[in-house]
Design a binder for these strands. Structure first.
Lengths: 361, 361
DNA sequence: TTGTAGGCGTTATCAT
DNA sequence: ATGATAACGCCTACAA
């Protein structure tokens, strides 16, 4: 590797071209204010020297980064292993790129999300899955950066975007109830354990005492509504939580079986977990949907391609990403002012092949 | 939303606490150099005012961003829709987070990758899939930022990391040949069309005149080697390219059928494309592997869960991400000096259910 | 059309 | 232990 030589600065170009630093700056930022040939000469000298404006210096003086942050309370590793997040990011990326913004991922560093947030050089933030009871949410809000929260219990002061989790979950549960299922296991997404407070890495387990908020809470109440309306019960010990990954779903199901549960159906809060659950079910030499029905949530691209095709609740993941960025860019444009906007996108149940009536035993 | 009030600066804290700016800086960066109570007082004033050091100013003065860039010649939208990339990013994220680095994604903005690169405030870059014949590769190298290229034809001057594409591809082709297939369609990953030069958005099509380089080229030559060794032929018109997505694979297969091809097997260069190909095959009322066998590449998490389970070439995607970052951090640590390092990881064929002997017709 | 000078907010150097 | 001052590299009134 070529030893890195000192990066040329604007003064070098100015000297070499025999003009002032201002002229060089103009050549890059407002060429119209320069005689055409001066501008051309400056640019060619710059090219020759390999000069380009230092982005950090530029940011500092323009107070603008042309970057938007994607903030998540989970480690990026768990995030990137969830296909739903891939689709969401796709939407975010499309909208950001279209407006010339780059993407910066903000995740807990050294256990601190607020710390990572302070380090982030962004013009605004899309926060996904940041529940309002997150211990650092207050510090994050105070950063004073335009913020759109996605899939959170709406912070009334901030723009928010979510989907009809309750309705979608209710539809999923109703579907199982109509098929005749009564003994149903809920496989939920575990709210990220803030490493700062309680780093209890005890894997998936039954729901903790405090009722989960955010998406998990909303979907859970959707499931419950359906059961209640049908005059049935969804006991607390039939709710197992874990990370929203294939492995998480598999582990969650194993956990439930270890507890002695033998449900005829599974309501998973993420397709990745649903797929993991199906794996666990098969490893027990049971079949889907013959012995156990499975319903997912998200409707990832591959949901229709797995075996059996997954019955799931569709949510517009890509659009969610696009819409979040577009709300954020609007707010950035307004320089943060204006009343907060709250949007909710629709969900719908997509019935495929992973659900069937329970086996008569 | 609260009207954003002027962000407090170091001088505000200094004044309020009755100390100098230096003292405030020390309170944050080297508290040991201050009397314990002064440090404490300063920090509490800072807290009260809601002050934290401006990250951009900090970067400027420290000449360090604690951020690594992930550069891709494709739009992020196509990237995030490829599960392989999710796994790779997972590895990148794990390694980066472990060292306290944040992630910044660099993709073509306004059609220019080099332009996006110049805007990027990063300490180093992991470039994935940047072929050496990319029109902007020279400008990117000249940026003088530590660079690790992944899945590229190795730039001899830079650290590089790839997998045994040739060997993996050869194994895939040999597998099909052994099963008895002769009429095989290759579904390849299309090198990104640099928007800067030829924005010919004519979708998937047969290979262009210039032979593809990078991964596509290497995998193709692996396939060819196997055919040649078996005394068979892999005609040029049996190679179709498209974006590495489900849709891309589906479109590529449709294209081939439109051309009149009726292969008994498909060699796809990505699992996403393989899954897309399987969809297209089924839409023609054909079965996999009964009528057409399909082999993928990557071995994404879901490969074993699709129907039928996908025979594919495994590559250590996560490890690739981790290793790339670790090489990059080493180089950053050496401040860019030292001889370039070149690593290659292994691949292996994983036979599942999507391949079988050709139907006797 | 071009140049001068001040500011962006920090950290580092060198005194005291 | 603390403070004054000069970088860091650029942008942009304002002046010429």
């Amino acid at each position: 590797v070529a030893q890195r030589t000192a990066r040329p600065r604007i003064a070098d170009v100015a000297r070499e071209a025999g003009v002032s630093k201002t002229a060089v700056s103009f050549a890059f930022n407002s060429p119209d204010r320069l005689a055409p040939d001066t501008a051309a000469r400056i640019r060619s000298v710059a090219e020759e020297l390999g000069y380009s404006p230092h982005p950090v210096a530029r940011m500092l003086s323009q107070r603008e980064t042309l970057t938007i942050g994607v903030l998540t309370p989970q480690a990026l590793s768990v995030i990137f292993s969830n296909p739903f997040f891939g689709a969401f990011s796709e939407g975010v990326a499309v909208a950001a790129e279209a407006s010339g913004y780059a993407l910066y991922f903000i995740s807990p560093l050294h256990g601190s999300l607020a710390g990572a947030m302070r380090r982030a050089t962004v013009d605004g933030v899309v926060a996904i899955g940041l529940s309002d009871d997150h211990p650092e949410v207050e510090q994050i809000r105070r950063a004073g950066v335009p913020l759109v929260v996605v899939d959170s219990t709406a912070l009334p002061d901030h723009d928010s975007l979510d989907v009809d989790d309750v309705g979608g979950a209710r539809a999923a549960a109703e579907h199982l109830l109509e098929l005749g299922h009564r003994d149903v296991l809920v496989v939920g997404v575990e709210p990220p354990a803030p490493a700062a407070t309680a780093p209890t890495a005890d894997g998936p387990g039954v729901a903790r005492h405090q009722p989960p908020g955010g998406v998990t809470g909303r979907r859970l109440s959707g499931y419950r509504e359906a059961f209640r309306a049908a005059g049935h019960d969804l006991p607390d010990d039939h709710v197992v939580l874990g990370p929203a990954t294939i492995d998480g779903g598999q582990a969650a199901l194993d956990e439930a079986y270890a507890t002695g549960l033998r449900p005829t159906a599974v309501l998973a809060m993420s397709d990745a977990m649903a797929i993991g659950a199906m794996r666990a079910i098969r490893e027990r030499a049971l079949t889907v949907p013959g012995d156990v029905s499975v319903v997912g949530f998200d409707d990832i691209d591959l949901a229709a391609s797995v075996d059996p095709p997954l019955t799931t609740v569709h949510q517009p993941s890509r659009r969610k990403g696009e819409e979040a960025v577009s709300m954020l860019l609007r707010r950035i444009g307004r320089r943060g002012s204006g009343r907060p906007e709250h949007r909710r996108l629709v969900t719908r149940l997509v019935v495929r092949g992973s659900t069937a009536p329970p086996a008569r035993s």
